[in-house]
Simulated assay, not measured.
Amino acid sequence: MTVLAVLLGLFVIATIGLGVVAIVLRVKLGRARAEVARLEEERLIVAAPTRRRPPRAIRRATYAVKAVAETADMLRTHGVQALVASSIDDLTQWLREDRAAVERATAPDGTVTMFFSDIEGSTELNVSLGDRAFVKVLTRHDEVMRAAIEQHHGEVVKTQGDGFMVVFRWPTDALRAALDVQHRLATDRGRLRTHAVRVRIGVHRGAVVARDGDYFGRNVALAARVAAEAEGGEVLVSNDLREALIDSTEFVFDDVREVELKGFTVTEQLWRVAPSPDDR
């Protein structure tokens, strides 16, 4: 009877312990979800005041899943005590860092300047050079792009093949980077000069939606369409961006064209950009 009583007591204690752990987890996850939801309400969604935000349920679900996953990982790795003792700030640090990255790319008026680029005729160049040589050319192209972007305070959002999507806080930095890229490519003494790599660049500014380190919205699509209209070696900008720099003497907008951009119903004015004569 004594042994049975001891075993029964241990079973009761274990059951109570598991119940306590379950309660702690439930409370911890509840606090995490609440904090993440609160931070999401404060999170900078870079958009004009009249632009609608993504549905709240979608936003909260996304970050709640992230919080639950991180909490489970902490429990598996460090146990219940570490979970109970950990700070909510650690759990949500990823969100604060994401918000800081968005703020770095946002001008005081709530706009972001977007820069898209790609290599003109890259498929034909790949076929003519062969895969191995083309990869070497592409590597050098990426080095030139990133050096110019970093020097002018740009943030690479993503790359795809030979294409770049970059955001800047200020239109002047975006145009300086674009012109710097073209200058570096034209004067490169290595593979880029030998194989005549020509990059087309399009720049536009406007209100966008930022989510998970990426940018979405009509203005992002328009910026990509502007780049598609550019020719190799050319920097092309939207009329909105030109108007933002209309008083600047640093850049020359020396050609204008009326175009119908795919997916847009209104004809757009696009301007070719060159540095001022003093900078050439």
Rank of each mutant, 00 (worst) to 15 (best):
M1C: 02
M1T: 06
T2I: 07
A5N: 06
V6Q: 08
V6D: 05
A14E: 08
T15G: 01
I16R: 04
V20H: 02
V24G: 02
V27F: 12
K28Y: 15
A34N: 11
V36P: 08
A37R: 13
E41A: 10
L44V: 04
L44F: 09
L44H: 08
A48T: 10
T50F: 14
R51E: 15
R56M: 08
R59K: 09
T62E: 15
T62Q: 11
V68M: 15
T71A: 15
M74A: 15
Q81L: 15
A82W: 10
A82F: 06
L83A: 14
S86K: 08
S87H: 09
D89A: 07
D90Y: 09
T92E: 06
Q93L: 14
W94H: 10
R96S: 12
D98T: 01
A100F: 02
A100Q: 14
A101L: 02
V102T: 01
V102L: 01
V102I: 03
A107L: 03
P108A: 10
V112E: 07
V112G: 04
S117L: 02
T123D: 14
E124H: 14
E124I: 08
L125V: 03
L125G: 07
V127K: 13
S128R: 14
L129Y: 10
G130N: 08
V135I: 14
K136H: 12
K136A: 13
K136D: 13
L138G: 05
L138S: 09
T139D: 13
T139Q: 15
R140G: 07
H141E: 08
V144I: 13
M145H: 03
E150D: 06
E155I: 00
V156C: 01
V157R: 00
G163A: 11
V167K: 04
D173C: 02
L175T: 01
R176K: 09
D180M: 09
V181F: 08
V181T: 13
R184L: 01
L185T: 09
A186Y: 03
R189N: 12
G190S: 06
R191M: 15
L192R: 00
A196K: 14
V197T: 06
V197P: 00
V209F: 00
D214T: 03
Y215E: 00
L222I: 06
A224D: 07
A227E: 05
A230S: 05
G232P: 00
E234V: 12
V235G: 06
S238K: 03
L241P: 12
L241R: 11
E243M: 12
E250S: 01
E250R: 06
V252S: 11
F253G: 09
D254Q: 09
K262V: 01
K262Y: 01
T267C: 13
L270T: 05
L270Y: 08
W271S: 10
D279P: 12
D279W: 15
R280E: 11
